[in-house]
Design a protein around this nucleic acid. Structure first.
Length: 880
RNA sequence: GCCGGAGUGGCGGAAUUGGUAGACGCAAGGGACUUAAAAUCCCUCGUCCGCGAGGUCGUGCCGGUUCGAGUCCGGCCUCCGGCACCA
């Protein structure tokens, strides 16, 4: 009965007196308890894990933080969720790896350097030290021996090594491309740093500047990444869908339109080859190679270039030239159009205004012909002449298309493509929205790109045995003139690795997404200090041989990844890409890094706004009035916690006031993990009360001695025993069923309610009572580990609760011996009856019909049918 | 515009396969203890009607399927998220 919990040592009277171990304070003081256990866990290094092929592993991973200075409530939630999973799996007998590290390169460190004159390294490492304290104060079960810090040379050396491998394979290459450029700061900005077309720091208008940049050829993996999406069974569908859309595969046809009177051809891309006969003009992007040649009015062309990509208006410029439609040899005008993207397809399109809404709008504006070539298949009678008000974009039946008329769109697409291919005028192609990944950043605080430029030899990779290329620390931060690396003569001037002549280093650094694309693999390799196990980087073994891949093979892939949805595309896609590349390098044997993904919701809170002073902190409001001006405060919407809206909560304050156990418990109880969580100060009080009640129960019985009485099992104690088994079952199932911690905690609260009202008297009562409390503490321990440990020890257990097995339940004991049977008449509840379980359907039916209330309800009406749902209800259907 | 997701008491949320709507918690109201307050404990708590027993309506709106719908189907409305001239 008590199979999983070893109760033997507690079943005898003299042991049970240990409940009275007089070490427990009456008052629950989370600070004392939590610091005590954090110290003990650290001293025993209990969270350290080693690869052990004899044990089943579980890799639990939370997205590592950027060391911005302090953790925020989003981290608290993320890491609380991860910690419950790690602790639960550990108790289930898995060899759990649960690592943590720092996404330590990035702009804020550099901005701090510019603004406050602190070196980015100092700033970063100080932040890491503080945040690490905060995480430990939360009682998170990390194996810190595996900690990685991406700004350390021992980490970014491998970024550089991967870069070189990719360069060898042609997966890293250089090309010219447009970037967001702030002329005032003289630097490149990421997309999210451009706010309403201006620099987020100095508000200068951002321009598009052409720069030579390094790219990773992620498009080589587009098809693989897309196809493998269907295998991501453990990911939220939403995220998989977002990835699919991002990759954006479309199949179509490329076809050449000759420029009339020249030898030039315009190659267009279309997914609608069936509408080829409806093309009435051709549009090319302003940056298309033929644009300059075809347009004589350079001023007009430049104007269009300025309007490129502006969504509000479609602007076109007639080139004065005509193209020949390869299908029917028709002469149609060529336009430069601002809405045609150079980056997608061929930078040129055929325009079919009758069947494409964008072309339709353009044709209307410039008064171009609209020719219908697709008729809806529904075959509704159509007016012979009618004014089109919008394009018909669906498939249908072809018309006005020579011999293809009357074919269905899908058939015609194939036939027309065949025709074009046969004539050598084009081919079927597949296009992706996914672009190659531009990784160059004109920034200091990142991984130096290991390339040297030589006037004679061109771009030369740094030899592997010279890695890492160290980021120099003695540089000046001015905030102007671009990367400080450009001014560092020591860094800049190097001999060419090939010809030993004068050469210069690349001064761009890598996008920080490179760092986070493989850190989960780094955790496996790292185990304290020492070699990371790739087996390269020393001169004796310049030819890299993958040594000792065992830890990766053992630990990877990640069994459960937890983080915010904001990374649904970029980080997760880059990581999938990197994993494939590393596999192709030959280091490991799998291509999907994350088996299961949990995207947790945001942490939100009510906002407060004063009509005069704007957003307010809660402490700036007294009795619904602004403390500064006395004006009534508007209680705004519940929104994601953000500093700008002042609806934030500092985890330090929270933990100082309530402790880590309460903070964790509430953030897990208030909502299921994938949903947004609305923070409620009163709700936290509720969780705190709950832990206090548990403390109170154990305290109350601390001095109780066993009073031997009868050994009869009282009804009372059998009820508590059942409730305990039911709770073990519910909590286990709720955790297993997509981590529904909120309902698991609700079940624990119910059990505590029952334990509170239970007063043990008999021998058996005490046995059950103890069993219930032990079960409660074990079930509570993943959520609120410190108090669970403390009370576990108090009731006389020597070993840490961390080393206990998760309790199991006895299905027979969970079963109720009486059920409340609902009796409905025509689907409406009329009575509820207590009945013993195990009655036959016929007996149940009889009892239901005999019930006076039911007799009353049915009256003399004919009983048409009776439905019996086992253990639930009876529905009696009567006539009118 | 397109693609997702969600709408349940005063609030956060439960309801696992179509079978008692509102578990658990918060807030609120009442009571006990206390000189008093806090803390704690007990009771009430979807709506409307009724002194009561009891009944009525009720899961965004309209309709459908079913003995029975928060759950399934069709059509809307609102909110949130993602993508957004990708030819």
């Amino acid at each position: 009965m008590f199979s999983e919990i070893n109760l033997d040592s507690h079943l005898h009277g003299n042991d049970r007196t240990k409940i009275g171990a007089d070490i427990l304070d009456e008052r629950y003081d989370p600070q004392t308890v939590e610091l005590k256990w954090q110290k003990r866990w650290a001293e025993r290094n209990l969270f350290r894990t080693e690869a052990d092929p004899a044990k089943k592993k579980f890799y639990c991973l939370e997205m590592f933080p950027y060391p911005s200075g302090k953790i925020h409530m989003g981290h608290v939630r993320n890491y609380a969720i991860g910690d419950v999973i790690a602790r639960y799996k550990r108790m289930r007998g898995f060899n759990v790896i649960h690592p943590m590290g720092w996404d330590a390169f990035g702009m804020p460190a550099e901005n701090a350097a510019i603004k406050e004159g602190i070196h980015p390294a100092k700033w970063t490492y100080e932040n890491i030290a503080y945040m690490k304290k905060q995480l430990n104060r939360m009682g998170l079960s990390y194996d810190w021996d595996r900690e990685v810090t991406t700004c350390s040379p021992e980490y970014y050396k491998w970024n550089q090594w991967f870069f070189l491998k990719m360069y060898e394979k042609g997966l890293a290459y250089r090309k010219s491309s447009f970037v967001n450029w702030c002329p005032s700061c003289a630097t490149v900005l990421a997309n999210e740093q451009v706010i309403d077309g201006a620099c987020w720091r100095c508000d200068t208008a951002v321009i598009q500047k052409q720069l030579e940049q390094w790219f990773f050829r992620i498009t080589n993996y587009a098809e693989d990444l897309l196809r493998a999406c269907d295998g991501l069974k453990g990911w939220p569908e939403k995220v998989v869908l977002m990835q699919k859309h991002w990759i954006g595969k479309s199949e179509g046809l490329e076809a050449d339109f000759r420029v009339d009177g020249t030898n030039d051809k315009i190659r267009i891309f279309t997914t609608r080859a069936d509408t080829l006969f409806g093309a009435t003009f051709v549009c090319i992007a302003p940056a298309h190679e033929l644009a300059e040649k075809l347009v004589s009015d350079k001023k007009a062309l430049n104007k269009i270039k300025e309007q490129y990509g502006k969504e509000d208006e479609k602007i076109g410029l007639f080139t004065g030239h005509y193209a020949i439609n390869p299908a029917n040899d028709e002469k149609i005008p060529i336009y430069i159009a601002n809405f045609v993207l150079m980056e997608y397809g061929t930078g040129a399109i055929m325009s079919v205004p009758a069947h494409d809404q964008r072309d339709f709008e353009f044709a209307k504006k410039y008064d171009l012909p609209i020719r219908e070539v697709i008729i809806p298949a529904s075959n509704e009678p159509r007016a012979t002449s009618h004014e089109l008000t919008e394009a018909f974009e669906e498939d249908g039946i072809l018309a006005n298309s020579s011999s293809y008329s009357r074919l269905r769109s899908d058939v015609a697409r194939a036939e027309i493509a065949k025709f074009i291919e046969k004539k050598g005028l084009g081919k079927k192609v597949v296009n992706y929205k996914l672009r190659d990944w531009g990784i160059s950043r004109q920034r200091y605080w990142g991984t130096p790109i290991p390339i040297i430029y030589c006037a004679k030899c061109g771009a030369v990779p740094v030899p592997e045995n010279e890695l890492p290329v160290i980021l120099p620390e003695d540089v000046k931060f001015t905030g102007t003139g671009g990367s400080p690396l450009k001014e560092s003569e020591k860094f800049l001037n190097v001999p060419c690795p090939k010809c030993k002549g004068k050469a210069r280093r690349e001064t761009d650094t890598m996008d920080t997404f490179v760092d986070s694309s493989w850190y989960f693999i780094a955790y496996c390799l790292k185990n304290g200090t020492g070699d990371w196990g790739f087996g390269i980087g020393n001169k004796k073994n310049a030819n890299p041989q993958p040594l000792n891949p065992k830890p990766i093979d053992y630990w990877m892939p990640v069994d459960q990844y937890i983080g915010g949805v904001e990374h649904a595309v970029l980080h997760l896609l880059y990581s999938r890409f990197f994993t494939r590349v590393i596999k192709d390098i030959g280091i490991m044997g799998f291509d999907e890094p994350f088996t299961n993904l949990l995207t947790q919701g945001m942490v939100c809170k009510e906002t407060l706004k004063c009509p005069e002073h704007g957003w307010l902190f809660p402490e700036e409001v007294k009795e619904d009035k602004c403390t500064r001006c006395g004006k009534p405060v508007e209680r705004g919407r519940v929104e994601k916690m953000s500093k700008s809206k002042k609806n934030v909560l500092d985890p330090d304050h929270l933990i100082n006031r309530y402790g880590a156990d309460t903070s964790r418990l509430f953030s897990l109880f208030a909502a299921p993990p994938e949903r947004d969580l609305e923070w409620s100060d009163q709700g936290v009080d509720g969780s705190y009360r709950f832990l206090n009640r548990i403390w109170g129960i154990v305290y109350k019985y601390r001095c109780q001695k066993l009073k031997p009485n009868s050994s009869l099992v009282t009804r009372h104690s059998s009820l508590l025993l059942r409730k305990t088994h039911q709770t073990i079952k519910r909590v286990t199932n709720d955790i297993e069923r997509e981590y529904h911690f909120n309902t698991a905690i609700a079940a624990l609260m119910e059990l505590v309610n029952d334990i509170t009202s239970f007063e043990p008297k008999t021998d058996e009562d005490w046995k059950v009572f103890r069993f219930s409390i032990e079960a409660l503490l074990l079930l509570l321990s993943p959520f609120s580990p410190h108090i669970a440990e403390e009370l576990w020890e108090t009731i006389g257990n020597k070993a840490s609760i961390l080393e206990q097995r998760w309790p199991s339940w006895d299905e027979d004991i969970t079963k109720e011996d009486e059920i409340e049977l609902v009796i409905q008449v025509n689907g409406k509840v009329k009575a509820k009856l207590l009945m013993p379980t195990g009655l036959s359907d016929e007996d149940i039916k009889q009892k239901a019909l005999e019930e006076p209330k039911i007799k009353e309800a049915t009256g003399h009406k004919a009983i048409k049918k009776v439905f019996v749902v086992k253990g639930k209800l009876v529905n009696i259907v009567i006539g009118d």
